[in-house]
Write a protein that binds this DNA or RNA. Structure first.
Lengths: 217, 217
DNA sequence: TATCAACAACATGTATACAAGTTGTATACG
DNA sequence: CGTATACAACTTGTATACATGTTGTTGATA
């Protein structure tokens, strides 16, 4: 992996795990110094993040982490739902035994989260889960779009996670991973996509409930 | 529009209009000299084009225009079909009278193409048509994806256009524009997306016929 | 005190020199 | 003559100095 790509992924993960909260100002110079490189590769990473709508670069003003627009959140999720369905149709799908092993390891680690309240850690486990599920998507464009939409929306869930029921959220993730593992063992990618779509739909419902009550209260 | 953005759009159009055919080697230095700037903004443009899968950048080797993978073409088109459907659902849609005027102007220019065999010119008219249709998509991600998929696939059509029936292709475009104009006049964006989906589906059929016969013959 | 202009301290954008990788060619050698 | 190696002529990647834009502060003035 090239230098800029490592920097890109690192910054992207920081944004998605809320290490950089929305509105945070990112300095090219400071990041360059931290990573021990010049501004050039850092700029390349930030420009790509801007294309993915995770930061906004303004000349003279600076580079700031975007705020997730709540009114368009539903539209983006609707798109994610549709794309998730398509994965089963368009992607032939092939998963290795090693990947299944890691999925089971992830599921066990998530189960251990029932008794350890750590939103960031849970988000990171799900982040890794997403990476594995992404790697089995054969279609390049579909993989890219799915990845991009995930990174645009995952912050919202993590942001309101402290206000949700912890055990319920952990259980939802454990269940999703369990169902997915069962399906991939039978190499039934169509079912995998349906499972993920359904879980995403349920998550969207919880988000709606929260956002509705948040607007009232 | 910033310097790099103008360069980006210019190079992108050249690739899509086959001024740069697949496999063409692009030199940062040469492009910089042509546009009268340094390599820096040119690199930014090329890096974005790489992200959109229109070029491949290899250190030491060079930057070359990608070849459209025929085996995945159907998958990309299937994705385009789905996304085009979604435009009607997710995008509230608003079009100005000026844009409708330009659509009619475009339609008239396309009609004049019956007697003037010029694939590149026809492609450019349709290119502009796409830009207008794109501008009415409210959802940012959907707009970006639709744009990207269009630019990834339009080259294929233009590439085999000389082997297709010229008058039929012109008529298909004139019809699509006519149907779209009729629908946007009633501000019925859902119908617009259906119309475009159907026309895209018919185009896909013609591509399939050609590719099938090309493999045989 | 309120207001506005000048400016200093940032930010990103650009140009350029140099580092490092790739590839084709030419030349020496078996 | 065939082959291997050294190298020259490209390419993109990186570091850095400077240009340019923005913003908050500071101080002079009404």
């Amino acid at each position: 992996m090239s230098t800029f790509e490592k920097i890109y992924k690192e910054i992207r993960e920081r944004i998605c795990l809320l290490d950089y909260e929305p509105g945070t100002s990112l300095s090219e110079g400071a990041l360059a110094q931290e990573f021990g490189v010049s501004r050039t590769p850092v700029r390349r990473a930030l420009q790509r993040l801007e294309f993915e709508d995770l930061v906004v670069i303004s000349r003279g003003s600076g580079t700031i982490v975007t705020t997730v627009d709540l009114k368009s959140l539903k539209e983006v999720y609707a798109l994610r739902l549709k794309l998730t369905e398509l994965i089963g149709e368009l992607s032939p799908g092939r998963i290795t035994e090693e990947q299944i092993q890691e999925l089971e390891t992830l599921r066990e680690k998530c189960q251990a989260m029932y008794d350890e309240y750590d939103p960031r850690k849970l988000a990171k486990l799900y982040y890794r889960f997403h990476e594995i599920m992404l790697s089995v998507i054969g279609n390049r464009a579909l993989r890219q779009f799915s990845d991009q939409l995930y990174h645009q929306t995952v912050r919202v869930w993590l942001q309101i996670l402290p206000d949700l029921d912890w055990e319920e959220e952990v259980q939802m993730i454990v269940d999703e991973m369990g169902d997915v593992i069962e399906a991939v063992r039978e190499n039934d990618m169509k079912r995998v996509s349906q499972i993920r779509r359904n879980h995403m739909s349920m998550l969207l419902g919880r988000l709606n409930d929260y956002l509705g009550s948040a607007l009232i209260g």
